[in-house]
Nucleic acid binder design. Structure first.
Lengths: 242, 242
DNA sequence: ACCTGAACACCGTTCAAGT
DNA sequence: ACCTGAACACCGTTCAAGT
């Protein structure tokens, strides 16, 4: 366990193999158990060998994100609404294949991955040719990316803050929900059958094992509809947003 | 620097003081520089004394979140739309006062804070008395909380993945944006004046120093409008979402 | 160019001991 | 009940040395 798992390979290490191994490790045991040192063990190599190839831990994780988000940018579509919906669901699908990567996107980096730059360029292209310009372009861009990255990040948030007590944290939350004070949480309790383990804050399983498909689709539809209203209003600017 | 900053206080430590000191430390130097050990130093005490009062690091951080989110639940309103908008902007305001706490909410925990349970109960109450029920209640709940927590989390995401290179990370991103390949990023470049440092993925400052007020307001309005459409449709269920 | 190996300054948590 | 103090098993990164 303390020794490298493989004998030092004859084939020399390279960036690509390291990043792939890192994503694999994260997929299997999560971000909490991931470290440069265990990755080095996986590769049968000293930790400093990893650093030599990929630089710092932060740079490595940025590349992991890029790898997980490959091929999310959709091809062109006739209607911008269809393209946006497809972008959001492709993004979500990619992260559902690598749920443990999600925290890196929603919280830890203001994005640096080349992939997200590609997405941004495509989105701006679609929006601007749909008639969004100036302020309304910025608004739509931020609404869509913020909603997409943020919502999915929350859906896939891990259940425990730190290593170890995943199962234990679940039990604690279930306990709390079972013993809610009826006086202060009347609304929750009267809708418990429909809400529990299906609604944010009230579920004990992450979206990785308990996906919120229906809610996501409804969210995407509502958002796109709302942005459509925004666009229509920006075309006759006498009626301002209240 | 390696010694406790204060002499051991005569007043004994307690939970409340520890949590307040932790929030204060996080506000001042961020999550990366925060550790149980530096908090103990701030309090003039050994690290294990902290653990004795608040338990594990994860439990401490959960309490920090609760403290930062005090008083976000709005009072009742006539229209559910007004209440939801107020909830979202109160939540955002609270986190803008404690931006370094944001990563804890959007990524790290599936929520355990008692405060978020209070918010959920109030939200369910407002939505159900507005006519949302069953599936559409779950959908609206998840759309609103996912949008709120997720969007603000992204807005306030720190610029660097890890300690140290904040300023350096900013420079790198600015460089990348200045040297974008015009062939593959034509759309971005033709709208650069309006997008750069004002749009997700294309900004180098976090929302803590560069808030996205206008985009947030537009987002909230678009979302509430879209959810309104959802509600209207659920009332004559013959017309399904396409 | 690529990797070993030791070292540095940190972590969170456990466990015994003091008062 | 509350805190000290030492110890354990980790971190990421630096720096010199090997080949």
């Amino acid at each position: 366990m303390a020794q490298p798992r493989r004998a030092p390979a004859s084939v020399p290490l390279d960036r690509e193999r390291i990043v792939a191994a890192a994503l694999d490790r994260i997929d299997r045991t999560g971000l909490n158990e991931f470290s440069v040192r265990v990755l080095a063990r996986d590769l049968g190599v000293y930790p400093t060998a990893v650093s030599w190839h990929v630089g710092t831990r932060a740079e490595l994780l940025a590349e992991v994100v890029s790898l997980a988000l490959k091929d999310v940018t959709p091809p062109r579509r006739r209607r911008w609404q269809d393209w946006v919906r497809e972008l959001m669901s492709r993004y979500r699908n990619a992260l559902h294949r690598h749920p443990n990567v999600a925290p890196l996107l929603s919280a830890q980096l203001v994005s640096n991955a080349g992939v997200s730059m590609e997405i941004a360029d495509a989105l701006v292209g679609v929006l601007s040719s749909a008639g969004f310009e100036g302020k309304s372009l910025v608004r739509a861009h931020n609404a869509i990316l913020g909603a997409m990255i943020g919502w999915v990040g929350l859906e896939l948030a891990p259940q425990s803050l730190s290593a170890g007590g995943a199962a234990e944290a679940i039990d604690r939350l279930r306990d709390r929900l079972d013993n809610l004070d009826p006086a202060s949480h009347a609304a929750l309790l009267s809708h418990r059958e429909v809400l529990f383990n299906k609604a944010f804050v009230l579920r004990w399983e992450s979206g990785a094992t308990n996906p919120l498909d229906d809610s996501f689709n409804a969210f995407v539809h509502a958002l796109v509809a709302g942005i459509g209203v925004m666009l229509a209003r920006s075309r006759h600017p006498d009626s301002e947003i209240p």
